[in-house]
Design a protein around this nucleic acid. Sequence first.
DNA 1: CTGAAAGCGCTAACAA
DNA 2: TTGTTAGCGCTTTCAG
Lengths: 328, 328
Amino acid sequence: MVKRATIGDVAAHAGVSTATVSRVLNGGAVTEVTATKVWSAVTRLEYTPNALTRGVFAGRSSTIGVVIRDLASPFYFDLIRGIDEVAGAHGSLVMFSNTFRRVDSEVAQVRAMDEQRVRGLIVTTGEPSDERARRMAAGGTPCVVVARTVRNPPPGLHSVSLDNVAAGRLMAGHLAACGRTSVGVVIAGTRPSQRERTAGLRQALAEFGLPLPPDAVAVAPAEGEVSDAVGLLLARDKRLDAIVCTTGRLAVAVHAGLSDRGLSIPDDIAFLTMDDFPWAPALGITVVAQPAYEMGRRATELVVEAPGEAAELVFEPALIKRRSCGEA
Amino acid sequence: MVKRATIGDVAAHAGVSTATVSRVLNGGAVTEVTATKVWSAVTRLEYTPNALTRGVFAGRSSTIGVVIRDLASPFYFDLIRGIDEVAGAHGSLVMFSNTFRRVDSEVAQVRAMDEQRVRGLIVTTGEPSDERARRMAAGGTPCVVVARTVRNPPPGLHSVSLDNVAAGRLMAGHLAACGRTSVGVVIAGTRPSQRERTAGLRQALAEFGLPLPPDAVAVAPAEGEVSDAVGLLLARDKRLDAIVCTTGRLAVAVHAGLSDRGLSIPDDIAFLTMDDFPWAPALGITVVAQPAYEMGRRATELVVEAPGEAAELVFEPALIKRRSCGEA
DNA sequence: CTGAAAGCGCTAACAA
DNA sequence: TTGTTAGCGCTTTCAG
């Protein structure tokens, strides 16, 4: 096992001090001849600087931490692309971890990021991890919470989210415009985003004279529970003519639940989901999309630019009409 | 901006030495009373250990580096899930970066991972980055190349790949079984995986008496070029009755290229692609799948277990029959 | 069981 | 322009 060259080895080989090596590496004032000597030693020894040590000295690393709740969701996927792109443009690496939707894991991962002294943190986790994010923000590490807002955020703790009520209203409006009169909803749980979307939906539906009773909303935390949820909705109201899914993560499963029962879209039932995805055009599925990629970009810019005040960015959803809800 | 507590602060508050604090933090021999004093100081000061410094001392960090060529591919997506899962189980964070398919970026990212002194490295990059991977392996950092093999690998440089020839043969066999007689192929480029898949396809097709002339293979490096490639194939042979796509990344685009021309699948033309994806069942698309998730897991296990010899894992593809090729 | 002291690889004053 | 000298925060001998 070959030992790695240190800055000391380079210094020795070049016949200069470590300070001088550090200077040529980081662009200090040095003679051209010294620089040449040093660079040749660097090449000869295949010296690769140790970013860890640099980070120790600086008090923090140069990588950006990202804690994702569930990689499998199309929203997170585009979000990561956006994050990765601007991080790359700033020469920052991205360190990420996935919490598999477990709260204890969320807290642990955020803590791990803190231990790594990340330059900034982007999380899509729930409120339990906010405490640490606040501390980190107070300590000078910009944090961005994505997909929900933070109550009473201190300086340095930002949020990037969607106007979820508007998303719900958009869905309701389209369904009504397509002449649907009885809608069932599959939601993933009780996170704020889910509740707000449902609220917006109910609100706007009511304005069209269409009620959305509580039992027209079925909860399916995981894919495996979706089929039952769909079954429940269908059984409850024989005249159900629309199903909406408030999270892209479960869209495949909801769609499958409908197909498995021999229901044809949109003739037998309309299907509308959150979050656009690459195959949606091929399937003709109408969606309410979040600008996930742009949200990832903006979140990362907040980390990089580290504004003093707490920024609270809210993005607007967009209805992308395809065929799955029929036409008016 | 609140200053972070260091181990020295904790020591001072607990009335012990930094060595003792380090011992209680890392499980050395200490009295119960000292331990209690230290822990209470830790809590009071909200002390969070600095993983960077730890890494400096250990000579390496505890995070695993992953360099991905293109996040947008379904293969990489499942691969990452596998990586993330076993890394999580071992308490390692994952640091990843995306190279957007640019060779210079690949080399730079791998270098960055080296500078970070990652505990191990998993790359899906091309050969130019192998040189550094060899050096890293020689220095005791296990490296795993995914999606291709490495010629003459030194100890510590492993590979995890697919039997691409078998994948091509599988595709050919299915197409022949479905009675297709003239196939066109869309490939992404000239990487080994693409060439091997094409070779397997051609080979097996020939055994069925079906030739695959060079101009029945169209190259489309990016999504934007797919439609033209499909057009070319269609124009070349009016009797074309099957299109295969050798990479999941371009499947959406190929499928769209067919639909846009009003071609119905499988009646007008069969469609067969590499890499399974969540919506494939809904679309009835037949695929030859790679066990991407499992490959990610195994790659990470190689990093964690760091076998002395160079491991060369080859996985088998699987045909998942759906409706897009019609039946025999 | 505990503390003092040395040092991991690097950067940043401060002199020379 | 360069070298010397302190550290950064932590771990690890080595005495006691």
